[in-house]
């Protein structure tokens, strides 16, 4: 893709340096600050893992660098209290449904917004932007009334997925990517008599594959991490995603476990691991340029 920032290759500090001494000092200072920052961001994750492995919660400084007394007991503890596998499956279904809806309908909408001229396009685009400003939490009462009271979708995957079914930010990302493709590509395909669906499928889509991965990553963090909505809509523990079961465990039953912190942190590791793994593995697809196309304007 013709993106402006590719972090692995761009060179920002190649200009000749007039005062090498001072510049070098500044450069090293930047690195020190940046690595201190990284420590602040990463330490809680490290501590989460350490805490989840401790037999007894050790909050002293020495506890952060354990030399012994490590155990996997906390994981079986949390698994006894909440059905980890069941919750993970629920999180997966919730997230999978949202990703499916976003990829299928989001690509169609993004393509239409970028490449097709139809009545109502500017209105739809304006509403799409507005949706990103007025978040769904503020409309939680009417949405709850609709989904739970009117349609009776409480305690169902459909009720969980519906308010998130198409991620507007992902639609925006798709639109930006389709917009970057040269117009000639489309006029040529149209002259050849290809219909729009065919153009989208065989001409445009192969060229925006990275956008699809970016959009999937972006969409993933919404439902996987969402707490409030599934918390409201599911009372049946069999249907609750992990974020909800863990939160309920934190606020209700933590007192009953022998090492509540260990058990909570073990649950936290299980909840955090898929997201962290995904974003570390696909970090190249989650860069400023992929997301920031909106700011560049």
């Amino acid at each position: 893709m013709a993106l402006t920032e590719t972090p692995t290759t761009d060179v920002a500090v190649a200009e000749p340096e007039k005062k090498p001494g001072r510049k070098a000092v500044g450069h090293w200072l930047s690195l020190v600050v940046l690595f201190l920052g990284a420590l602040v961001f990463l330490f809680p994750f490290y501590y989460m893992i350490v805490g989840s492995l401790q037999e007894e919660p050790d909050t002293s400084l020495r506890g952060a660098v354990p030399t012994g007394g490590l155990t996997l007991d906390n994981y079986s503890q949390i698994n006894e209290r909440v059905d980890l596998v069941r919750s993970l499956v629920n999180s997966g279904i919730f997230t999978g449904g949202v990703i499916l809806g976003t990829v299928v309908f989001g690509i169609l909408a993004g393509y239409a917004l970028a490449r097709l001229h139809f009545r109502g396009r500017s209105t739809l685009f304006a509403v799409m932007l507005l949706v990103q400003i007025v978040p769904f939490q503020l409309l939680i009462i009417p949405i709850y009334v609709m989904i739970v009271r009117t349609y009776g979708l409480a305690d169902s995957y459909l009720g969980m997925i519906l308010p998130f079914a198409i991620n507007s930010t992902a639609v925006f990302v798709f639109r930006q990517f389709f917009l970057q493709l040269p117009e000639e590509l489309f006029s040529a395909a149209r002259l050849d008599g290809a219909n729009e669906l065919r153009i989208l499928w065989s001409v445009a889509l192969p060229l925006v594959k990275p956008a699809i991965l970016t959009a999937i990553l972006l969409t993933f963090i919404g439902p996987w991490n969402e707490f409030l909505w599934p918390f409201l809509v599911t009372k049946d523990t069999e249907l609750q995603p992990l974020a909800v079961t863990l939160a309920n465990y934190i606020s209700n039953v933590a007192g009953r476990a022998t090492n509540p912190y260990g058990a909570i942190l073990a649950g936290a590791v299980v909840l955090a691991a898929p997201a962290v793994a995904l974003f570390v593995a696909f970090q190249k697809h989650f860069t400023a340029s992929n997301l920031g196309s909106g700011v560049k304007g």
Binding site: A38, P44, G51, N225, I264, A268, L271, A275, F279
Partner: peptide, 26 residues
């Protein structure tokens, strides 16, 4: 270490609040 730094910065952003709250409580 640019990629490493970038990833370390956004890792909290992509992680569930519920999981991170657990560590902050600790």
């Amino acid at each position: 270490a640019r990629a490493f730094l970038r990833v370390s910065y956004y890792i909290p952003y992509v992680t569930a609040s519920v999981a991170l709250v657990a560590v902050w409580l600790f």
